[in-house]
């Protein structure tokens, strides 16, 4: 199968790693397991996975460190596996570059749904500059077909998730979207997503697209509601 997606599982619990690969393989993915943080970083370029399932507590280097290193060179979606929902770990992990997280213990269906949502779109370099489905907002150009966003002609290096977030907001330009709506449209949660996901990724997105991330002009917060992509007139 040429379209077979590779998923790298980084978890120090061998039984869980094996179980994860059984479940993923039964869903038609190729699974590679790795139980050490440092080894995962070494393996990553040779495997070139489409998605990384990353445990936070790891020997060698913890999941947050791994996420940071991987994010420097790759835009591959990172989904963290965590047993702790309450600690700063989740937020730090998201800030380090993870796209989503899933709390242990989880249902298989939940895991597959999360993975599918993250693998929905993969950048297609062939249509990257075809010019169809392009949204222009001042300097900002969002190429929906090529899944590339540029500002002043410079590639913004958005991760697929950030791109989804930006294009979803831009599609509803001038219209406020709640965090719940964004969780549904971008992350694929039907209910009960963690709104911190939205907050953290909006921050990351602003770092990349705004001139002054602390005083955002394009993606603005609607107090007590959600976020809004400002109309062009308002931006100028």
């Amino acid at each position: 199968m040429t379209s077979e997606k590779t998923i790298m599982i980084v978890d120090d619990d061998l039984a869980l790693g094996e179980m994860l690969s059984i479940v993923l393989e039964s869903e038609g993915y190729r699974a590679v397991t790795c139980s050490d943080g440092l080894r995962a970083i070494k393996l990553f370029p040779t495997i070139h996975p489409d998605l990384v399932l990353l445990d936070i507590m790891l020997p060698g280097m913890n999941g947050i460190g791994v996420a940071k290193v991987l994010r420097e060179t790759s835009h591959a979606p990172i989904v963290m596996l965590t047993a702790k929902t309450d600690t700063r770990d989740v937020v730090t992990g998201l800030e380090a570059g993870a796209d989503d997280y899933i709390v242990k213990p989880f249902k298989n269906s939940e895991l597959i749904a999360r993975i599918k949502a993250r693998l929905r779109f993969t950048p297609n370099p062939e249509v990257a500059h075809s010019g169809t489905g392009v949204i222009r907002r001042g300097d900002l150009v969002i190429n929906k077909t090529g899944r590339v966003a540029t500002k002043c002609g410079r590639d913004l290096q958005l991760t697929p998730l950030e791109f989804d977030l930006l294009s979803t907001l831009a599609q509803h330009e001038g219209e406020a979207l709640t965090r719940g709506e964004l969780l549904e449209k971008v992350w694929g949660y039907s209910a009960g997503g963690d709104t911190r996901l939205v907050n953290v990724h909006i921050q990351r997105l602003r770092q990349k697209i705004e001139d002054d991330p602390d005083n955002p002009l394009m993606v603005q917060t609607v107090r007590g509601y959600g976020y809004k992509f400002m109309r062009q007139g308002a931006v100028d």
Binding site: K104, P105, N108
Partner: peptide
Amino acid sequence: RTPVTTIRMA
């Protein structure tokens, strides 16, 4: 939680 996750998945 980790072993329960494995059991749950199984």
